[in-house]
Amino acid sequence: MEKMIISPSPHIFSGDTVQKRMRNVLIALVPAYLAALNYFGLGALAVSLISVASCVTFEYLINRFLLKRPCTITDLSAVLTGLLLAFNLPSNLPWWIVIIGALVAIGIGKMAYGGLGTNPFNPALVGRVFLLISFPAEMTTWPIAEKFSAHYMDALTGATPLAGIRAGEVYNYMDLLIGRIGGSMGEVSAIALLAGGVFLIATKTIRYIIPVSILGTVAVFTAILHAVDPTLCADPLTHLLTGGLLLGAIFMATDYVTSPMTPLGQLIYGVAIGLITVLIRVFGIYPEGMSFAILIMNAVTPLLNRLTPARYGAK
């Protein structure tokens, strides 16, 4: 018989892995991805493939040559960052800008801090906000939704609902729900994103607190503003279904590494993201504020982590 293995207890494990968690999130993104392919066709395919491939390549290269650490791409977190970055980009974005975004997301957003688990900001959002500030024109000309579009960089462009609302246009809820609107490739179809969110909560990949508190805050806050002055702020449902709100609330704000860990911390974080988002949307110069709101609250997360959970026998 071989030598016995000795270790401290416990001796059995759940079999859960980081890779499985990341895979669950990827599965949850599939409906929204299919919607994106449906509306933006070739452009969506090109941007997503370039983004994922460059994120994975950059992580591999940085680990191999800069940090000289074992390869970590098998945990799928780079794939997820790549896909989320692509979801936050217009599908007609030139390929070289996508690659720059991936380099910033992985290089500055993630690996500069030591890789998965130690980055203070959501890498995909770091990439997106960098691009938004560096290439404002390219980042805010969105293609219009079109069935199985065969266009990439030469797609027809139009305004997003959030910008449209500011200009006084009115949108049909059905279009907003299924995503027949302009916008970043992954954010348009509310129903697909919600389906992904339900999957994540059902598989216990994420807790419901953050998404629910963000969406609830946005609904309540916009309802108040709408009641005060309907010309200042659109109705709550339009706000909930437009822009990056659902994508951000379900997939970006819930990033394990950069969100608070205790239920109370998560609630404060979610409410604050909701408030900041609405403030930027209604009073700010940008039509959309989700990414800024999440990044701002990412910075507050270490502070929120000082809140301790309810202990047994503390009373």
């Binding site: 030598k3 293995i5 401290p8």
Partner: peptide, 18 residues
């Protein structure tokens, strides 16, 4: 060696165990 330690590679942990 007559067994294989598979816990945290730390003397204090191992010696408290066996």
């Amino acid at each position: 060696k007559n067994n294989q330690f598979d816990g945290l590679r730390n003397c204090a942990v191992a010696s408290s165990l066996y």
